[in-house]
Write a protein that binds this DNA or RNA. Sequence first.
DNA 1: CTGTTAGCGCCTTCAC
DNA 2: GTGAAGGCGCTAACAG
Lengths: 340, 340
Amino acid sequence: MIKRQSITIHDVAKTAGVSVSTVSRVLNEKDDVAEETYKKVRNVIEELGYSSDLAAKSMRSRKTNVIGLIMPDVTGPFSVHVAKGVNQAILELNYDLMIYTSGDVRKLSSSTKEQQFISSLNNSFTDGVIIVTPTSGHFISTSPVVVVDPSIHEPSGPAVISTNYKGAIEATQHLIDLGHRRIAHISGRLDLLSAIRRKKGYEDALGHAGIDYDPELFVNGDYTRETGKECAEQLLKLENPPTAIFASNDQTAFGVYEVAESLHIRIPEDLSIIGFDNVPESGNFNLTTVDQHIDRMGYAATKMLIDLINGNEIESTQLKIYTELVIRGSAMKLGQHSSG
Amino acid sequence: MIKRQSITIHDVAKTAGVSVSTVSRVLNEKDDVAEETYKKVRNVIEELGYSSDLAAKSMRSRKTNVIGLIMPDVTGPFSVHVAKGVNQAILELNYDLMIYTSGDVRKLSSSTKEQQFISSLNNSFTDGVIIVTPTSGHFISTSPVVVVDPSIHEPSGPAVISTNYKGAIEATQHLIDLGHRRIAHISGRLDLLSAIRRKKGYEDALGHAGIDYDPELFVNGDYTRETGKECAEQLLKLENPPTAIFASNDQTAFGVYEVAESLHIRIPEDLSIIGFDNVPESGNFNLTTVDQHIDRMGYAATKMLIDLINGNEIESTQLKIYTELVIRGSAMKLGQHSSG
DNA sequence: CTGTTAGCGCCTTCAC
DNA sequence: GTGAAGGCGCTAACAG
């Protein structure tokens, strides 16, 4: 690693024997530069290994060709899969990607912090920003912002969200079709629209089937595996435990698996379970789940953002991604098992 | 989402009735500001929802409190786990994290692109940078750069690397102890030191055991699952196929699993396999593997970087993370099986 | 304690 | 086709 004083546009200008503005012109591919001058400058740039300072550049010009992605963390499966989709889109559309995080949901999840991140990125070196599962709904920004899995406080800004209600209905209905009546639900982060909609779907499916809603069977999760475990414990230790659980997402479902195992409850023989998300890991668990195509959400959000950036006409700024029930082996007919 | 012209330090200064430098002082928590003035300015900042422009800020001050992480992609397990470790470290050390990627190994993996990323980040809004599996080894930079899993071209810069040689020796030895003699190796990206060292460990373990090195049993992979499949196919369709494979990483091993399954080769009865990395997924596959504590690598790299940034004394800029053989069920004694 | 004065590296008029 | 000058939003001396 060579450590050297960073070389600027001035250095290039000097050694090329031209002015800084000329260098700036070739840097930005302006077409009013003489062929010869262009080549000469390009050579010097190459030679010196010059690369323009993004900060300085973005301060003057409004176009940086990088989009920002603000995530509560970089390690949760949801974030990772959104990032995957975004990754793919920027690849196709030839943008660079800058992910900004403070490392923890709890550290980011204050609207001021979110706003600060947006300002930091968007007012400077980013052409637009995608924010994932925000706490707040109002963002002050000079460049476009699109949100993935918006909060309940977001009224109408550009957003990508999946058909959570439909997905929850189908999941719950599947359980009902299997003969289950005591169906529990562990909810997600209830400040997120997705969690609210899934909860509603669960309730409505129950209602349509004429099943009484038992408040004992509803517990409040937050989409994490840890909380999933706590909730599962609470549910499974009930005097009259559920025969099936609809978990608000796969992480939560994995938590249920853990608890079930420690309690010697077999899945699906003793307990049916359905998740939401269809992260790859759910395949290993043979988990029946609702695929919400997280990567597509990231992809679509990126497309939308870039359309917004370019001022293109957009059909709708509220994009829905269609969910799909993926039937695997974690839910089975009630009373099907030989033992118990 | 409210769209508004971004408000600057001048706006704050004006409405607070002070000068911009005073605002700058409270922004940076300088202690030579009158209590009263401080409060007044803070109020106005709050009121206006002001947040400083990172670009402009970092252009003047050398300290941004954000570190950069440059990765070939954001979706591969290795990257994700490095990010996880980095994430943890910045949380503890109170830094923010900026991940920069162009989305694909192939797009990043040119030394010019890498250099460009480093320049873009490090000469401007980042106090230092971590680069993962770089192609090149020489970086021009004004701020510190530490590399995780360095290339073979990196002579001596700050780096974090695991004991690849030791790990490979142990893995291969384990296979030998199990009675295997025809042990194949699918290598990793050979422009990376890690891949070279693992290959060497494999060869040496074979040598020490007095096993002839059969060039047929060595194939050239690149750490991806896809290539792992191709290599496995080549190996398993050999006239005299190996009884065991030491894969350069878990991804590669997963590729082997896929091919084995399609060829009706049972693991471990017909074929023993050992991976490298110990990503969580390997648990699901019951894969015996070498844990290289990827997250620790990210964590350690971040610590080192921040020490470098603060000008602290550092014991060594070449940090080794110790690997550990994790024995699960994918490798068994040769000839142990009942059938075949 | 606070305001004034210079730039940081770059892009963008506006002349020539 | 090219150069000179000005300023983006901010911080860092230097005065007072």
